[in-house]
Amino acid sequence: MMTNIIKKNRYLILRRTIQIGLLILFGGANWWGWKFLMGNYSSAYVLETFYLADPHAVLQTFAAGFVMSADAIIGAVIVLVFYALIAGRSFCSWVCPINMITDLATWMRKKWKLTKKESFFTFSRKTRYWVLGLGILLSPIVGVAAFEVINPITMLHRGIIFGFGMGWAVIAGLFLFDLLVVEYGWCGHLCPLGAFYSATSRFSLIKVKHDVEKCTMCMKCFGVCHEEQVLHIVGEKSGFIKDECSNCGRCVEVCDDNALKFSIYNYKI
């Protein structure tokens, strides 16, 4: 029984461990002077030897008219290459702390059965790509990386590590938006960083693979996936799950028939 629960949540447990672990490492740098991971999700100084940086932030800054130092640019390239060629949009489900907030909202939404009847307001999941473009376009106009001044991801980090100030209101707003207004509202419709990683990870190696032979059409995966449009091949044909899939593994966990599994992308298909 217990082992079954763990098995059914194995990726969830792993994801939360990594997400919280990163927060603890970041926090340790501030609270106890640890040197493992300084900085935040925009740029992190790893073991006092090299930097990682958010390619989306570096890109906006470039658009705003400032070329960052080599440290940040190299850091951004490392991150970009890692997600684009290997891990896909994993940032969202495995790293981003907002994911824990929006997942909580979704969980409560489902528990309280707010799911369908409260959706009095909907909009396209493609909106995020417009937000992404708009952010880049606005950066040179306002003379500052446009998304970074409203970025709830780093705001949440700052809140947890340095104290919230008024920042909690933004996070609470985001949570309520996901809970009461639109299902998967932020991460599934608006966040430009999620859009950025979705757009760049088309050819990433790690992808979920669907085996139509094994699929019994139970549709459980559609119930757990936060980007259900990516599951359009399920029950129809075998293949890889692409686009906005964040490699969270929820579908893999829920599938009782082994029809969805993490796999290595076959470029020929």
């Binding site: 002077g33 300084m38 935040n40 925009s42 958010d54 570096v58 705003a64 008219g65 500052v144």
Partner: peptide
């Protein structure tokens, strides 16, 4: 330039 350049990582703070 500073408000453009700073990636807001907080490494200096730490």
């Amino acid at each position: 330039k500073f408000v453009k350049a700073c990636i807001r990582c907080g490494t200096c703070v730490e």
